[in-house]
């Protein structure tokens, strides 16, 4: 079964908890060298994943499309070794790493999300409890050195995303992802947020926005639904 965005079908059963986390490669501790500028972000992301996955019977990791290019292996990016097996996206590798750091042993499956369609059939077993781990970042155009340089639309856009994550407002999150400027501002979360919104339409327990920062001109969010 394929459903176009925006999703109007009722939520599948089983999704109990969701963690929204960044997908920056700097979540691999060693990549920044001797310093660790994202230590706090990493700790909060790991805690969000741990909380979301605790006691769950399956875990689905939503990954923005793309990033299967070289170096392919973010654990060891400066070596010229061939990548073993099929290349995996940056988001998939970051997601797997966060699950490892969180000590999650529940089997996880990974879904690459695009601007097109997602096939929800068989995605999750509705008879068991499930957690979502949603990778994706906000606008990447908030400083001179940012990937997208400076685009003033980044600031209200990210403020709105933060508000939607804080409020657990899936409708607002999906609507923000669908805006034309989301692609122009290099918002990677635009690929995964609508899928998350479709699978878990509302915040039902304690949670909300845990972290929002842009140390490198690109906004990182951590949220728990």
């Amino acid at each position: 079964m394929s459903l176009p965005y925006p999703y109007e079908a009722p939520s599948p059963h089983g999704v109990q908890m969701t963690a929204f986390v960044p997908m920056t490669p700097l979540l691999f501790r060693h990549l920044s060298g001797q310093s660790d500028p994202l230590a706090e972000l990493r700790a909060e992301a790991v805690e969000a994943v741990r909380t979301a996955c605790r006691g769950m019977e399956q875990v689905l990791v939503l990954c923005p499309v793309g990033g299967r290019e070289a170096p392919g292996e973010w654990h060891d990016p400066s070596r010229a070794r061939p990548v073993q097996g099929a290349p995996r996206s940056l988001a998939e590798q970051v997601g797997e790493h966060l699950l490892e750091l969180a000590g999650v042993e529940t089997p996880a499956s990974y879904l690459e999300c695009t601007d097109g369609e997602v096939d929800f059939a068989g995605l999750l077993d509705p008879r068991v409890t499930s957690a979502l781990v949603v990778l994706g970042d906000g606008a990447a155009a908030r400083s001179q050195a940012a990937p997208g340089h400076i685009d003033d639309r980044s600031f209200p856009y990210d403020d709105a995303v933060a508000a939607a994550l804080a409020a657990g407002d899936a409708t607002a999150l999906a609507e923000l992802a669908a805006r034309p400027e989301a692609a122009e501002l290099l918002v990677t979360g635009r690929h995964t947020w609508p899928v998350a919104a479709r699978l878990r339409p509302r915040l039902t327990g304690p949670g909300g926005l845990v972290h929002c920062s842009d140390p490198f001109g690109l906004t990182y969010f951590v949220a728990r639904w």
Binding site: T24, P25, L26, H30, L31, S32, G33, Q34, S35, P37, S78, A140, A146, P147, P215, F216, G217, L218
Partner: peptide, 14 residues
């Protein structure tokens, strides 16, 4: 040489 990690490597990694 690869014997010492960079002090602070964030370029193009955000």
């Amino acid at each position: 040489r690869g014997d010492r990690p960079p002090a602070n490597a964030t370029r193009a990694l955000a």
